[in-house]
Structure formats: C-alpha cells, structure tokens
Design a protein around this nucleic acid. Structure first.
Lengths: 105, 105
DNA sequence: AACACATATGAATTATATTTCATATGAATA
DNA sequence: TATTCATATGAAATATAATTCATATGTGTT
C-alpha cells in the first residue's frame, strides 16, 4: 500500500467533527438526525463528514425509507482506538512537557 | 481519553511528509540528513515534521554529537499500519466507486 | 576564538481542509 | 400531486495546517 492510501485513511480520524461522529456511533447505530442531535453540530456539516467516513468504509449506511442509518465499522475502529489509548498509556507521562499539550492524560 | 487526544495522535499520520518519514524509518533509525536525503524533502520541513512526530512519541530521538538520530516507535506504528492494510483488504474492492479514489488497491 | 556542520526554530506565506449557506433530491403522506 | 420530512450536495467563505525562508543554536574542529 502507498503513502496516499494511509493518508486518506487517517484523515478520517484527524478531525474533531468526524471523531465526534465516530465516538457517538460506538454506542449504537443512528440515523442522521440522531447523530446531529447527539454531537450538536449542523446537519449539512454532519452529512458532509458522514460521506467522507462512508467513502472510506469507516462507517456503513443502510436505507430505511427516507432515513439513512449509519453504523460504525467496529472491526476496524475499535482496535484502532484501543491502540491509541495504549500508546498514550505507555509513552506519555505528566513529566513530558509536550504530553500535556498533545494528549489529555 | 478525549476527542482532542485522538485527533492529535492521528494528525501525525494524516500528512504526506510525515508518512514519508514514518515509512522511511520502518527500515532503520536515521539521522536528519539521511532522512532528508531518503524522502527528498527540505531540511527545515523534515525537522518541523520530526518535531511534531517526536512530541507525540511516534518517533524517538537520541543525540550523538551534533547529529540526532530518529527511530520509529514500532510498538505503536507497526500494528497501526497493519490495521489499515487489513481494513483496505477487507472493505475496499475495485467495484466500489470510491475505493479507487481513496485507496490505491 | 573562529569556523563549519547538523539540526532546530519563528514567522510569514501558501496550500489544504472544513464549514456554511442555499438549495437539491428522494421518500412518505395528505 | 402538493407538501413535508430526512438527508445530501455544490460552491463560496473561512479556518487550519504545512511549507518556506531566514536565521538561530549547539557541537565538534582548526
């Protein structure tokens, strides 16, 4: 796999709005309206970001009448998030002058 | 852990230059000059990006005289990259009209 | 001490990504 | 079929990140 592919994958997780959506879908699948309510962001903003996430298969969509139900690709995302948590736990201490800026420990 | 921490972690991998550095350090530890040569980017650009990576403990630094030797945090990075490769293999087919744009399969 | 080499850094510039706003689409319903 | 509801979409505006350039710092050497 090449650089650009990795980049395109990680971009999904390098943004506040999309992370909000991702973390909110950890609990359960939701339609757009529910996500909008939960994350407290504008509908079109959420839709734009959902599109990006689903293009990359980070989330999946199913239609139900006029609503669309989004669910998290847990097989990829859960281990990914766990890896990050482990990273912070293992590498980042309060003593490090950057860790406090970078990660909320 | 909170949204911002995840974001700060993933930002390291969501950029061409930093990914170039990361992939190049998979092979072996290198000083800045060697990295610059290998990735073919400007020295100050590489340094700025190395700083970001090391602030987040994605790479580690050791001093040796006037040179600084950077090495990859393989414990975090190798499983992370493997996860992405698996994701693409499992979810992204040539049939999908976005996969070709998003990932080079 | 003066110099050269390796690397880092700050600030301005430039590039890129994200959001916003207005509007379109498509499904259900009166 | 006109209307409403849920969601998507394009393009302009804005925000954010990355690069560049000039220069600083630190270490070893003459």
């Amino acid at each position: 796999m090449n650089k650009k592919s990795y980049e395109n994958f990680f971009i999904n997780f390098a943004n506040k709005t999309r992370l909000g959506i991702i973390l909110c879908l950890k609990e359960k699948k939701m339609n757009v309206g529910e996500i909008v309510k939960k994350v407290g962001e504008e509908q079109s903003k959420v839709s734009h970001n959902l599109k990006q996430l689903s293009d990359c298969h980070i989330v999946n969509v199913e239609k139900n009448g006029k609503e669309r139900i989004y669910s998290l690709n847990k097989k990829t995302v859960l281990p990914l998030l766990r890896l990050v948590e482990k990273h912070v736990k293992c590498n980042c201490s309060e003593k490090c002058k950057f860790c406090q800026k970078v990660y909320v420990i």
